[in-house]
């Protein structure tokens, strides 16, 4: 049964296991430094579909079916799926999963959704309510652009602080027992809003949420940054990562610089791939956790990773109405066998 430790963190004594994981990405992500890590790279950004929304559903379905098959089980063995994406009413998810006939808990946490789905899936597994479940997220550059920004062919300049929504999806199969990396503890974050209004600078909007959640987790578990191989944020990009480290040092006296990595800085070659401040989107951290991180935890190359998914919870309506950006961050402690 889950046990609360400290004020915000929940320990999972049964240590739910990730028995299978898969990550699939689009062409641009497949040209990035992590290309070797992914299970599949789609060369066609449309994935052969008639709309970008359908294309996003296709990559998510691909990630989910690959993860389930790598876990050595079938869809009928999955008790519940925790899934979300960036599109209005989460249609990337609902259309990707409608044929799978698995109980669905649809989630919206913007780019924090991978951490949120892993957290809720492992909590439900640890509580005994579920035997096997799947956590997944996706994002697609083109479906996100048309919903949040401009048409693809519109000729405008992106500001240097902007992040590039990754075309990617990650999925992880969580089970109450078996072989693979464990989920040991989770922290569900609190909304933080320090008044940033620029939707082109989401890293700056999300950094305070990441700082709070990391500090909460370290306090609650009485650990230090050195106790982790990686503290992975996803996805703050270059500006958000700088601000996160500054905030933690200044306000909490915590220095994570030796172990900090950010998904938005890992998925692309920032200097060569013209992505401004780095990658973003639920699929970005989703794909990195479900490939690079989980694979290294499985092989034992990494022992302990604190994954902190960060989400900017605005909409294009709230931005137009001049509201600042509420942000959230959830933490999941992943460890090797």
């Amino acid at each position: 049964m889950p046990q609360r430790v400290g004020r915000y963190t929940i320990n999972l004594p049964s240590r739910p296991v990730i028995i299978g994981n898969a990550a699939v990405v689009g062409k641009k992500e497949g040209e990035g430094p992590l290309a070797e890590e992914f299970d599949h790279i789609f060369d066609d950004t449309t994935m052969g579909e008639a709309s970008w929304e359908k294309a996003e559903s296709a990559i998510q379905r691909e990630a989910v079916t690959r993860a389930i098959s790598k876990a050595g089980i079938g869809t009928a063995d999955v008790d519940m799926i925790f899934a979300g994406d960036l599109l209005n009413q989460c249609i990337g998810t609902t259309f990707s999963l409608r044929e799978l006939n698995i109980p669905l808990a649809g989630l919206y946490g913007a780019c924090s959704t991978m951490a949120l789905s892993l957290a809720l899936g492992s909590l439900m597994t640890d509580s005994g309510a579920l035997g096997t479940c799947v956590a997944t997220t996706s994002s697609h550059f083109c479906s996100a652009e048309r919903q949040f920004r401009y048409p693809l062919e519109y000729g405008g300049q992106r500001p240097p602080a902007a992040q590039w929504t990754a075309t990617a999806s990650g999925a992880a199969v969580i089970k109450n027992q078996g072989e693979g990396p464990h989920i040991d503890a989770v922290t569900i974050g609190r909304i933080q809003d320090m008044g940033i209004k620029d939707a082109n600078n989401m890293g700056a909007a999300m950094a305070p949420a990441a700082a709070e959640t990391i500090a909460d987790f370290l306090n609650d578990t009485n650990t230090k940054p050195e106790d982790y191989d990686i503290i992975l944020t996803g996805d703050l990009g270059a500006i958000g990562s700088t601000l996160l480290k500054q905030l933690l040092e200044k306000d909490k006296n915590i220095d994570i610089s030796a172990v900090h990595k950010d998904g938005g800085l890992m998925i692309y070659d920032i200097d060569k791939q013209d992505v401004n401040s780095g990658g973003s989107g639920c699929g970005c951290s989703g794909a990195i956790v479900c490939s690079y991180i989980l694979n290294r935890l499985r092989s034992g190359e990494l022992k302990k990773v604190l994954f902190v998914g960060t989400g900017a919870l605005m909409s294009s309506t709230s931005s137009k109405q001049g509201e600042s950006i509420p942000a959230i961050a959830h933490a999941v402690l992943l460890s090797c066998q």
Binding site: Q157, P159, P160, A161, M194, G195, I196, N201, A204, P208, I239, T242, L243, Q246, L247, K250, D251
Partner: peptide, 19 residues
């Protein structure tokens, strides 16, 4: 002391490269 919104806004501006 915790960073205020005003201080954070300055930090964010400083960290963000100009066009």
């Amino acid at each position: 002391m915790a960073t205020t919104n005003k201080e954070y806004s300055k930090m964010a501006k400083k960290a963000s490269p100009p066009s």
